[in-house]
Nucleic acid binder design. Structure first.
Length: 610
RNA sequence: GCGGAUGUAGCUCAACUGGAUAGAGCAUCGGUCUACGAAACCGAAGGUUACAGGUUCGAGUCCUGUCAUCCGCGCCA
């Protein structure tokens, strides 16, 4: 017996189908699933309908034959056939108890560890030097960090790649502007820096052609607004910036020093926000555009030498077989583009880091860019690691964060919402709730000092925002509604955190030693809770495979509901029967371990009290 | 114009990748505490899954078309 009981049943059923249909070697999938309705049992096999049809056999008869040849008596109740040919399986309680014992004894809580020794590289956060973080970075950062934790949880090495926008003309323009005004970079705030960045952009990004074309193509409001902003003014400041960039590229010592200060100034503020967010991203994860600057011409040469790139109107482009749109890898003035840098980064990640899985957590608007990028990578053969492993490249195209008006989130005055202001509000809301709660005499937080309350408030407020983000299907846009997130009711982070806190105090009130108490199933709610716990690994593997954190969120929410139902109907400490009492404490403890572990994978903290 | 995404209860979202009666949470209405933490639990009501066809034992899910919203479309990142 083992935790992968589903795999065992799968195999037995498969053999049953093989013998019933007198077929071998063919992949006959019994379509074993968790039962959709608990009344049908624990698992269901949907294979008979499709296979019966395919091989000219009555599905129901097929199911009956399978049932008569498969022997699951040791672990399950007699199999039942329902409807057109569903096979329903209900495990014996003894089987369930044995599995839960195993899960509880396993430090990994049953989560299967990966045997892939190649690292995963996750492109996340994506800050631009001299720019304030905004809500777009929120998603890239917390989704990327959750995915990273998920891979680390199954034992894989992860490179969190913070691909900073720290190089090129935009940065040169800011630097030029700041130096022209002899601003002291040591004491500069990111807000001031952000203003300088915007001024510089306004000065240099005039793009009448792009604007005209956007109108012509009937472009959406996103693009038009962006281009309008760029066109508001145009000046000759670029020339100075271009000169500065050249000097910087040539390694002018003074300039390089100033440039480094600029990055430092940005990252000080960035890491402050990232710290509040409880994400594992630090200076050691910085590997920005500047890191690749020496490699760009080599990358382009490789494309040229391989015959994969051609000249077009003075620019160098890569063409694809199945579409019109080419990818530019060098401008007609000889400069490189972000696509060039991204190609260099892919080469580095696959060839030097030897990653066999590249994940880009970048918003959905860049779909076409990544399609081009990945296809170009395949053309030149960087889709294999040096030791020959196939590289999987995935773009996670997450949706936009919208305001109540269903348009990209803005402040009342129409400016972008900065990440720090958003986090501040979330924390403030969390702190207010915790303080309010602590005024009640019966609350475990009653009388706690304010510093502790603030820490808890931060954990709750941030947890609420992160859970709200991660619990949605990533590709969809979602409406940011602080009130709903911090409501702490229903499917929210705090709901789950609250259950953890209750279990902790429950356990702390139990004097007896329950650590090796026998698990007992006495009430249906106990069985239901244990069955939910036993799905942890399956859900986890599903999440790894699909790269969808919201699956874990949904399951954790269900687990919390199962626990609350159990807790409501099964007295724990008040139970007279001491064996049953200790069993329930132990079930509660296992639930807490799983909830805390799952929340941690999502990057959400679980306060002791709240 | 071309390409892509999305459309599920009043609102915010699920649906284990084609399975049994489409599920939750808010909001609404009705029950549970002199408390193993009520930030909880139990129940009611709420649906032509944008629309029209098609594929099959079976479709929210797959294919075709239509509509709506959003995004992208060579020298910005």
């Amino acid at each position: 017996m083992s935790l992968n009981i589903q795999a065992i049943i799968h195999e037995l059923l498969q053999k049953g189908f093989e013998s019933a249909l007198s077929l071998k070697g063919e992949s006959l999938d019994p379509l074993l699933r968790k039962a959709q309705n608990p009344e049908h049992g624990d698992f269901q096999s949907n294979g008979a309908m499709g296979l019966g049809k395919k091989h000219g056999m009555n599905p129901r008869e097929l199911a009956e034959q399978v049932v008569s040849t498969v022997d699951l008596n040791a672990i399950a109740h007699p199999l039942e056939i329902a409807g057109p040919g569903f096979i329903n399986i209900k495990l014996k309680d003894d089987t369930v108890l044995e599995m839960v014992r195993e899960m509880d004894a396993d430090p990994q809580l049953g989560v299967t560890q990966s045997d892939d020794s190649h690292p995963v590289a996750i492109d996340l956060c994506g800050v631009n030097v001299a720019k304030q973080l905004h809500v777009g970075h929120l998603r890239s950062t917390i989704i990327g960090d959750a995915l990273a934790r998920m891979f680390e949880r199954v034992g894989r090495r992860v490179y969190r790649e913070n691909h900073l926008g720290d190089w090129g003309l935009p940065i040169a323009m800011v630097l030029e502007r700041l130096m022209a005004n002899s601003v002291d970079l040591e004491t500069l705030s990111l807000d001031a820096l952000n203003d300088a960045y915007r001024d510089a952009q306004l000065g240099a990004r005039g793009d009448e052609r792009g604007f005209a074309r956007a109108i012509e193509c009937d472009a959406g409001p996103h693009r038009v607004i962006e281009l309008e902003t760029q066109n508001e003014s145009a000046s000759g400041a670029q020339q100075a910036a271009k000169d500065l960039l050249i000097a910087l590229q040539q390694g002018d010592e003074q300039l390089v020093q100033e440039w480094e200060k600029l990055i430092e100034c940005t990252m000080r503020s960035v890491f402050e926000s990232l710290g509040l967010l409880n994400v594992k991203i630090g200076p050691e994860h910085n590997r920005g555009e500047s890191f690749y600057r020496e490699q760009l011409s080599g990358v382009v040469e490789e494309f040229v030498d391989g015959g994969f790139a051609e000249e077009d109107n003075g620019a160098l482009i890569v063409r694809f077989e199945n579409r019109e749109r080419p990818m530019l890898i060098r401008k007609s003035d000889g400069g490189f583009l972000y696509a060039t840098t991204d190609l260099a980064a892919i080469k580095f990640r696959t060839q030097s880091l030897c990653s066999d899985q590249l994940i880009y957590v970048v918003d959905a608007r860049q779909r076409d860019h990544f399609k081009d990028l990945f296809d170009a990578t395949k053309i030149i053969g960087w889709d294999k690691t040096p030791d020959g492993a196939e590289v999987e490249m995935v773009h996670i195209p997450f949706g936009s964060v919208l305001g109540e008006d269903k348009k990209p989130l803005k402040t009342r005055s129409g400016s972008n919402v900065t990440l720090s202001s958003l986090l501040e509000e979330a924390i403030e809301r969390g702190v207010v709730e915790v303080r309010k709660r602590s005024l009640e005499p019966n609350a475990p937080t009653h009388g706690m000092n304010d510093e502790k309350l603030c820490t808890i408030g931060r954990q709750i407020g941030i947890g609420a925002v992160k859970y709200a983000d991660l619990s949605n299907d990533l590709v969809r846009d979602y409406v940011f509604d602080m009130d709903r997130m911090v409501a702490f009711e229903g499917n929210t982070g705090p709901y789950i955190q609250y259950a953890c806190a209750r279990i902790r105090s429950l356990i702390s009130k139990c004097d007896a030693d329950w650590s090796d108490a026998e698990f007992i199933i006495h009430e249906p709610e106990e069985r239901a809770l244990i069955m939910q716990l036993l799905q942890y690994n399956a859900v986890f593997q599903g999440m790894i495979q699909s790269l969808e954190p919201h699956r874990l969120c949904t399951w954790l929410y269900e687990l919390t509901e199962s626990f609350n139902t159990f807790y409501q109907s099964c007295p724990v400490l008040k139970t007279e029967d001491s064996k049953l009492r200790l069993s329930r404490v132990r079930i509660a403890h296992l639930t807490k371990k799983v909830l805390v572990d799952g929340l941690d994978v999502l990057g959400i903290e679980s306060p002791e009290h709240m």
